[in-house]
Computed example of a mutant assay.
Amino acid sequence: MKKLVAGILALVLATPLLLVGMVVTIMPSWAAPEDGSGGGRSGSSCVIVPATGGVAASATGGNTPKEWQAYVHEAAAESGLPAGILAAQLEAESGWNPRAVSPVGAQGLAQFMPATWSSYGNGGDPFNPRDAIAAQGRYMGALFNQLKGLAAQTGGDPVAFALAGYNAGPGAVEKFRGVPPFGETQNYVAKIKAKAGSGDWTGSCKATASPGGTQDIYPHKDAPFCNTTPCAPGTANPESGMYYRECVDWVIYKLNYDIGSRAPPYKWTNANLLNGQGMAYQWRNQWQAHGWPVSATPVVGAVAWFDISPLSPMGHVATVAAVNADATVLLEEYNRLPNDHSYGQFTMPATQVSAFLYPPPA
């Protein structure tokens, strides 16, 4: 049996096999941490979640003007979008000219029209780089949240929809149920996504401890976990409806934590998040039943969902801590070896995640 399982595993690169109380996984060489921190690859370009999510960003180098790199990372944290997207967008909008004015009156690095600036500028100056980049993050985050439901309905790319909304207005995206058939808008979206995907826009980042001093925010890290059949008394978490120290319990806690629900009774539990169908392999179906966005495009705070049904009926879920410009994602998770029923970080190509389940509405 072990030889058969090993043979199957060899066909699926880096696929985890997870059972309640048991974890088997293959760790390819590119996934090994280089700095002992448990996650990330030194030298990769990335944007890290805000301090509420557990890791902080440190940026150096890259093609973004050095004096504005921190502003781009702050805007990325505000919007939940990759810093590479925002940086490439600023390049497309103004060529990094903070004094730019278009023939129709768009102003500054982010080329805001005065009416839009009045809603997202927060009283700042569109010609001030920090104010402009911060407003860009706020506006892109608002567009992403407005249009991600449409993207889920149509199978479209929510990042592309947000970019198109920035260029042509969200009404046009909703009217055409996708990127509008305007040459300028289609070229705009394609140019930004291609440039962001080149991996040269945001400086090197490294996962570091949050201001709280630890990246593992899970409050039950020392609780007894299920390693028998049936599970022993005391291993079930009555606050979530899951079992302690399983991947699913971590993700439910993290979703609550990110929206400020940090003490019981929590906003989300197995009952209302998943209709009591809490096994990891069932999460995508439950998301779709709610009408919540499911996408191949990663965003910070999303659930990384793994369909490994040929190997295990259980599946696996993790949370996205960072979206890297080299097309990898940094995941935070519980119960992946060598972190048996404990916290760990793992960097892997986004394409090896079966789907990204975007955070449900707060």
Rank of each mutant, 00 (worst) to 15 (best):
L109P: 07
A296S: 12
R245I: 00
P361H: 09
Y358L: 05
T64K: 05
G212P: 05
L330W: 06
W117D: 06
G278R: 05
T319C: 09
F182G: 07
D125P: 03
P224Q: 01
G169L: 02
S309M: 12
V323S: 08
S342E: 15
E184K: 06
G171L: 00
T64Q: 07
A168K: 11
L4A: 13
N167H: 11
T64F: 06
N97W: 04
M27Q: 13
A194Y: 13
H341F: 11
P224I: 00
I308S: 11
P224M: 00
V303K: 00
D216V: 00
E332R: 08
A304T: 01
R41E: 05
S42H: 13
V49Y: 10
H73Y: 10
Y188D: 10
K195S: 14
G212K: 12
G39Q: 05
A321Q: 12
P219N: 02
S45V: 07
W117L: 02
S295G: 02
E91Y: 15
Q153G: 05
L81M: 14
I308M: 10
N256P: 03
N237C: 03
L17G: 02
E74S: 04
A160H: 10
G54Q: 02
T214I: 07
M1F: 09
I217F: 12
A92I: 06
Y243H: 15
T202A: 13
D216Q: 07
G95D: 07
H73L: 12
Q111R: 10
C226G: 10
N128A: 01
T15P: 04
A263H: 13
A100C: 07
D340T: 14
S119R: 15
K148G: 09
V329P: 02
G36P: 08
W283A: 00
G301A: 04
T269Y: 09
G53M: 10
S42C: 13
H290V: 00
G39F: 06
F127M: 12
F182A: 03
A350Q: 11
K3P: 08
L147T: 02
A322S: 15
P98C: 09
T52Q: 11
Y253E: 09
G171R: 06
Y257H: 15
W283S: 00
I85W: 10
A77P: 04
E239F: 13
T269L: 02
W250H: 15
G54S: 05
E74G: 04
P293K: 05
N97I: 01
A280V: 03
P28N: 04
S309V: 08
S79K: 08
A92Y: 14
F112V: 01
L147Y: 07
T185P: 14
Y334S: 12
S118V: 03
P313D: 07
